[in-house]
């Protein structure tokens, strides 16, 4: 079970109403390498992996939901008072006619989120390497969003999220070491 703390993991400030940026950010909300995919992928893998790394998947999977909340806040703030005309200019008309300014789990191109994004092979090594790749892909996505964003305060939050991907990648790399480790065995020369 979870306890909920009613605050964001890191503050989210948005300087200007910029629906176009929201269109890019939605990639991290409902995209293949987004936070929803990450959270569900890790939490789902917990059941079929050696118990030594279950706690790690639990912790990181939970933190991904905290990131999802930050992304949702960014998208919400970027679009909340945008007029239909502004949404149209930002290329969000298809989103508007379907969802008004509600958030929806789809990627930047409008493809709805699908369970195919979350891999679970059941092989611990395959799954952990998948997770490392997912973290590096999410890190890269944050870099590209920062590069196209002109909002310094939003970029500050995005840089925090990018750093978290680095730390997660580091931890999954350690998990791979734990899984292949023979440290507990006596070494006989």
């Amino acid at each position: 079970m979870w306890y909920y703390e009613k605050k964001l993991q890191y503050p989210v400030k948005v300087r200007e109403c910029n629906p176009r940026l929201a269109k890019y950010l939605i990639e991290q909300y409902g995209g293949a390498d987004g936070e929803l995919s990450a959270a569900l992928r890790y939490l789902n893998q917990r059941y079929t992996i050696p118990s030594k790394v279950v706690g790690l998947l639990n912790d990181i999977g939970t933190e991904e939901f905290a990131h999802l909340e930050m992304i949702a806040t960014m998208i919400y703030k970027l679009t909340k008072d945008a007029t239909p005309e502004m949404l149209k200019e930002a290329g969000l008309a298809p989103h508007y006619v379907n969802h008004d300014s509600a958030l929806f789990y789809h990627n930047s191109a409008g493809n709805p989120w699908t369970a195919e994004y979350i891999q679970a092979k059941g092989d611990p090594i395959a799954d952990i390497y998948e997770d490392i790749a997912a973290e590096e892909k999410a890190r890269a996505t944050y870099q590209w969003i920062i590069n196209v964003s002109d909002d310094p305060e939003l970029n500050d939050s995005l840089k925090f999220l990018r750093e978290r991907e680095i730390v997660h990648s580091q931890r999954f790399r350690e998990a791979a070491e734990i899984l292949k480790d023979e440290r507990d065995k006596k070494i006989i020369f």
Partner: peptide, 16 residues
């Protein structure tokens, strides 16, 4: 908190 990690060795500053 502002760096996103406890350890400077894991901190990677990203420039736009």
């Amino acid at each position: 908190l502002y760096s996103g990690t406890l350890w400077p060795i894991l901190y990677d500053k990203y420039k736009k």
